[in-house]
Design a binder for these strands. Structure first.
Lengths: 228, 228
DNA sequence: AGTTTTAACTTACCAAAGGAAAGTCTACAA
DNA sequence: TTGTAGACTTTCCTTTGGTAAGTTAAAACT
């Protein structure tokens, strides 16, 4: 059987095409994204697109999956350099708000793609597990700073807050500001946790360190080539 | 000139059609909403739809405008019965989370509609002023409970949190829970404001009262007929 | 009253879109 | 060598958004 090679080619094409589709959504919006344009961007004909994805919905699903894994890959990458609970908490924040990911194009694309979710079973499932994982990550780290019950509630609220900041960035015409978003998030987190002054200071240190890590790691040529 | 009557007919048709389009988005999603189906729901042919709206974008814009004004109308209605700063603050909360408005259908439709915003100038403007108004309302009421700078920041965060809760409700398959959403919001607000125990109690009283008002006023036959 | 204008609505049409189906080509397996 | 699987192309069909040319009915003007 040619299992290995054929599967490999199919995987490669699907990856190329979902990347092209992502570009198309960024440029033309959901309604302006046609199979022909996606093919054009990828340098193939419409037929090829439909050969690898059974229909437009499943193509969009792949795009959705892709843009969600960009985020979790970033977090994994950041966590290869974190050392304390503080830093791991801030790694989550920076994975969501570093300029490479949190920018006008990506936010708008994310909002556009969201329209596909309510009537697409698979997208809903992807969305559900992604949110579950990020909330779980947050809760796990927050447990170092408060009791279990509060950690759960605060993790949930912060997760929702992240989504909210993303939506707003996508809906407004204005260019999202990475630092401003993180400032806002920090303010909310500090208050929700009821941090003392020394704790706040530790958070500030962790933030500064993770910021440095993020700008080094997530902007590296190798990383951008592979996941973005 | 027949300014008065013609304008009136046009206005009526546009209202009927945008309501029908909203239903279509609820039922079939953004991509499944065709002009023919919208016409079908409204009981007219596709041609009529395009006679009153120059294209699909402007129809969707009207739907968007409509669903946003549902929210602000609710707030105005609630505020006809509020008496204290506490109650006015909670009126904002209930306007956003009362079951009549905060339910699966509407949330999903809102998310679906959002995809139109990034590439539609007019939708962006509508979205911008709506968010500005709700943030401004929040800030105005919060000033009774904290200093100006904090009020501004907290108002912004709570506004974003509202959007976040809505997106999640739209993206997840699960039925949104009005009371749970309000609980979550209350928790966040109490912590962000750093309320003392007696203050918390006043909030709880205000919440209870506005809840009663909301279930009476916003579920009344007259109100639902007019704005929903 | 009779004519003109305006705006609601209809019909017929078109180009582009999503998608199905059948066919071509190439590489490998038997 | 022959058969087969999977990558890719081509052709065709239906639906969709959108235009343009009617048709009708009522208001506006003279």
């Amino acid at each position: 059987m040619m299992q290995r090679q054929s599967k490999s080619i199919r995987t490669i094409r699907r990856s190329e095409l979902s990347r092209a589709a992502f570009d198309a959504v960024v440029r033309y919006g959901l309604r302006g994204t046609t199979l022909e344009r996606v093919g054009e961007i990828a340098g193939v004909s419409k037929g090829v697109v439909l050969h690898h994805f059974k229909d437009k919905s499943s193509l969009l699903e792949a795009v959705f999956r892709r843009s969600n894994s960009m985020l979790s890959d970033s977090l994994v990458e950041l966590n290869r350099h974190t050392q304390s609970p503080y830093e791991r908490l801030w790694a989550i924040v920076y994975a969501n708000f570093v300029e490479t990911i949190f920018n006008k194009q990506v936010c708008q694309a994310w909002v556009s793609l969201s329209a596909e979710v309510p009537h697409n079973e698979m997208c809903q499932r992807v969305q559900t597990v992604c949110n579950a994982r990020i909330t779980s990550n947050l809760r796990h780290e927050l447990r170092n700073f408060s009791d279990a019950e509060d950690a759960g509630r605060i993790a949930h609220i912060l997760g929702v807050l992240i989504d909210g900041i993303w939506v707003r960035a996508g809906l407004f015409g204005a260019t999202p500001d990475s630092d401003a978003a993180i400032d806002e998030f920090e303010f909310a987190m500090i208050r929700l946790l009821g941090c003392s002054a020394p704790e706040q200071d530790l958070h500030r240190q962790a933030r500064a360190k993770v910021k440095t890590i993020a700008s080094m790691v997530l902007n590296s040529r190798a990383f951008r080539q592979n996941v973005l």
